[in-house]
């Protein structure tokens, strides 16, 4: 990516622009790779849902083969349908195969988010704004400071009480 034409265009203020576009292009390529992985787990996710739906519907058909004719029958059919679907889907959501695939799906989604965050950071830095990591550092610093202040306050309070007792 650091080709001569790009290097030539990178003189002066354009230098960081060229470096940034290289970073963004790398992230975009990696996003495509992550997207492929994400789609793999998403397809499996919908496959599991569709298979469970079909199996549940088969069970409903076996249990309630007649088309409901009156209000009571419709109510009974609805109850059977909801119970079977809830049971089968809960069984799926409780299963190891669902849990593992869902975990990987979320992980890939986070991978995509990470790339998007990286691109955002490049843009933020090019505009002389703090990156997400830099803001996080401030949050961490604030959190640690607050803890120290609370600790000091408690110590001061204890000392005051001890002094008053004397």
């Amino acid at each position: 990516m650091s080709s001569k034409p790009q290097a030539l265009a990178s003189t002066g203020p354009m230098r960081s622009f060229a470096a940034n576009s290289k970073k963004v292009a790398t992230e975009l390529i990696e996003i495509n790779e992550s997207l492929l992985e994400f789609n793999k787990f998403l397809t499996e996710y919908y496959k599991q849902l569709a298979e469970t739906w079909n199996e549940a519907q088969k069970k409903v058909n076996l249990k309630a083969p007649e088309v409901p004719q009156d209000v009571e029958q419709i109510e009974a059919f609805k109850r059977i349908w909801i119970d079977i679907f809830d049971n089968d889907f809960t069984e799926l959501f409780d299963s190891k195969k669902f849990g593992e695939n869902y975990g990987k799906l979320v992980s890939q989604e986070l991978e995509l988010t990470k790339h998007w965050n990286n691109i955002t950071n490049v843009i933020l830095q090019s505009a002389n704004l703090p990156s997400k990591e830099e803001i996080d550092e401030v949050y961490k610093e604030l959190h640690d400071l607050k803890k120290r202040v609370i600790k000091l306050e408690i110590e001061a309070k204890k000392k005051k009480v001890a002094k008053n007792e004397k």
Binding site: T90, F93, D94, S95, K96, F98, G99, E100, Y102, G103, V106, S107, L110, T113, K114, N117, D136
Partner: peptide, 22 residues
Amino acid sequence: DTTVVSNLAKNMDVDKMVDTIG
């Protein structure tokens, strides 16, 4: 815990989740 919530929690990459989205 036999609930769905626990199944999702057990398979979660929680480090990655918190590092990425806070």
